[in-house]
Computed example of a mutant assay.
Amino acid sequence: MEEAFWYEEHNCYWGIAADIEGHPYDDLKRSESNPGKISVSYGGVGRNITENLARMGAGVSFVSAAGNDFVGRMAVQELAALGVGVENIHLIEDENTAMYLSILNNVGDMELALCNMDVLERISVDIINQAMPLLQSSKMVAMDANLTEDVQLYIMDKLQGIPLFLDPVSAPKAERSKKYIGRFHTIKPNIGEAEVLSGIEITDEKSLAKAGAYFITRGVKQVFITLNARGVYYKDTREEGILRLWDCISIVSATGAGDAFSAAIIDSFIRGKNIAETSFYGMAAAQVAMQTKTAVNPQMCMRKIEEKINMVSKTI
């Protein structure tokens, strides 16, 4: 990472998982063994954000739980090799690492999936307390809604005065953070998650702005609502806007784009960027992520992000 800017700050995340995907060569036949390709990769919103930040050159630590199995141990080793602080990843003997297993059909659509995220429920107050010196010395602490409501509230109470970032993960899990949304400095939901968190149905730009205003009035300092192929809506107390997806860049896969955007938001906060600059920076990071099929582009770095920004700047 010699081209990346390094700073001694700590940002902490929670979810770690393994993604297993099966893709048959021919039509999927039920109740049979289907020849095909099987891929295994590390995932989880928190883990993906952490890897992106490490590749951007950030000083980042990871707080989480995984099974004391081959998958969990290798996930820790991979993060450590990137320079991530892994001392607070707890490998639990009686659990397996969180996994998401999906079976696709021959055109790439999901036919069946099974997830086991039980170990993430084992991220307890005790685990948080063990990481407390790290958390209390952080410039920003990032949380995802895999954490139980009780644990989220405990972190909020113990880290008053430290900016908290929330990635809600999914609409159902966003419910865990809804009552406390004003205690987050920065949030990055998608439309469905924003609807859950605000109680506002988002159908157009007017209702989108209404949801953004709701979050600001509750105490959130920065709001980023991702709009899939339509870009991102951003708002703070001074600025508001929508940044459209740049159509001058080819897309291989949108998988992991949101996690790269989240990483860029946090990196921007540490660097002191304003919200419009952060949105632009986040869009560039997301489009670096979309140039590979993996959840995190192994070529992610500041140089790649700056190349995207320069490319778009020439077309504006």
Rank of each mutant, 00 (worst) to 15 (best):
L134S: 11
N34S: 05
W246G: 09
Y214V: 11
G231L: 10
P35K: 07
I275Q: 08
A229M: 14
N228C: 12
K158L: 06
R303L: 08
S124Y: 02
A142P: 06
I270R: 04
R303F: 10
P298H: 00
A174K: 00
A80G: 10
Y233S: 12
A284Q: 03
R73L: 10
I155Y: 00
T50E: 03
S138C: 11
G231D: 08
E175N: 11
S64R: 06
I155N: 00
S198M: 01
G182D: 09
M110R: 07
T292W: 12
L114A: 13
E240L: 02
I38Y: 08
I242C: 06
G85M: 07
G231Q: 08
N129F: 05
K206S: 13
V296L: 07
A254W: 04
E121D: 13
A289L: 07
I123S: 10
N274V: 07
I49S: 02
G67F: 00
C248N: 12
I242L: 06
A286D: 01
A174F: 01
L243Q: 08
K273M: 14
F261C: 05
K173R: 04
L134C: 08
S102Y: 11
F224E: 00
L227E: 09
V84A: 03
P24I: 03
E21P: 05
M140T: 02
Y281P: 03
R183I: 14
S64M: 06
V71I: 10
A17D: 09
P24Q: 05
S313K: 15
D144T: 04
Y13P: 02
M290Q: 12
A254K: 10
D26T: 09
S61F: 12
V125N: 12
V63N: 09
S177V: 02
S124H: 05
G43P: 03
T148L: 12
G46L: 03
S250A: 14
D94M: 04
P24Y: 05
E193F: 01
D267Q: 13
T278N: 02
A113N: 14
G85F: 04
E9S: 15
E32I: 15
I49H: 01
I20Q: 04
F224D: 01
S250D: 15
N228R: 15
N88V: 07
K304G: 04
S198H: 00
K293D: 11
G272S: 09
L28R: 09
E2S: 13
E51P: 06
F165Q: 02
K293E: 15
F269A: 07
D157N: 10
I20N: 03
F184T: 02
C12Q: 12
L91A: 05
G72E: 09
K139R: 15
Y281H: 06
F5R: 13
L147Q: 03
A54H: 03
K37M: 15
L112C: 13
M117P: 10
A113F: 09
F280K: 14
L164E: 08
A263T: 12
G256M: 01
V141K: 09
Y180T: 12
T292D: 13
G22K: 06
I266Q: 04
T278G: 02
G199C: 04
T148W: 08
Q152H: 11
S313I: 11
F70V: 15
S39H: 11
F269D: 03
M302T: 05
Q136P: 00
V60P: 00
C115W: 13
A254I: 06
G182R: 07
N48Q: 05
D27M: 12
L245N: 10
Y25R: 05
K206L: 11
G59Y: 10
A171N: 01
R218S: 12
G219Q: 03
D26R: 13
N129T: 09
G282R: 00
